[in-house]
Simulated scan of single mutants.
Amino acid sequence: MLLHIPQVLNAAQVAEIRQYLDSTEHWKNGRHSAGAQAQKIKNNLQLDVNTEQYRDISNAILQALKQQLLIQSAALPKHILRPLINCYQDAGNYGNHVDNAIQTCSDTGQLIRTDVSLTLFLSNPEEYEGGELVIEDHYGTHEVKLDAGDAILYPATSLHRVEPVTSGKRLAAFTWMQSMIKDDWQRNTMFNLDMTIIKLRQQLGDSEEVLSLTNHYHNLLRQWGEL
């Protein structure tokens, strides 16, 4: 499931983050955080995580993600890793790859299974040429280029890439989540059921039928969920 999450950050929040990112020199070669295979195809910059400013920015983004009801419904996150920040410019790109199945939480050292990936755009589409996030799944190939503050949520099992940025600068945050439901089909089923319950509740209130569907939702969560 690919899901567009609008306005994870509002314009003021994006502007505050951009004020720092557009002026800082605390960038490192993105290959330093990649595995041996990914290093050959990764050509970008990543914000140094050993700065107070990175900590402040990642905290703000992490809190915004946790407050997004659509993310909570679609991803059913058990853990959300602290977001990283990257920059693509001067033909920077990242070839086809699949994210590592296991990541280490920088705050606790805990190993996290990456079920869901998220990219949060911090540059508007008109600020750069190229730089599309291209995601391949069972239904084909999808090119994603969203407004600053918007995010795309997609299965971490997906083959994906970032096309070369031929002009301008593409800034984004990215992270991974371990879901309470690791199977993408089951997770998608729960999301669709939740959205249906919300719509029916708006139309019918807490009717007997809505309460019955809600009961089924929670019973499925008990059956499929891992804590």
Rank of each mutant, 00 (worst) to 15 (best):
R82K: 14
G109Y: 13
R82L: 15
H97I: 09
N100C: 01
S23N: 15
Q37W: 15
G109F: 07
L65E: 02
I85T: 06
W27F: 10
L9S: 00
T51F: 06
D56F: 13
N59T: 09
N50D: 13
P77R: 07
I102V: 10
R113V: 11
H32A: 12
L21G: 02
H26G: 00
G109Q: 08
A12C: 04
L45I: 02
Q63I: 10
H26T: 00
N100V: 01
A60P: 01
Y94E: 02
N43W: 13
R55G: 12
D22K: 14
N86P: 10
L84D: 06
E25F: 02
E25H: 11
V116S: 07
T51L: 01
I41A: 01
N96A: 11
V116D: 12
D115S: 03
G95Q: 04
E52S: 09
Q53H: 14
Q37E: 15
L65V: 05
N100D: 12
A15E: 07
N10H: 11
L84E: 06
A11S: 08
Q13P: 05
A74N: 09
Y54T: 08
Y54I: 04
K40S: 08
Q19D: 14
D115N: 13
T108S: 12
R55L: 15
D48P: 04
A15D: 01
L47G: 04
Q89Y: 05
Y88C: 00
L81N: 06
A75E: 00
I61D: 01
I17T: 13
A36Y: 13
G109A: 04
A60W: 10
H97R: 13
K42P: 03
Q46M: 03
A91M: 14
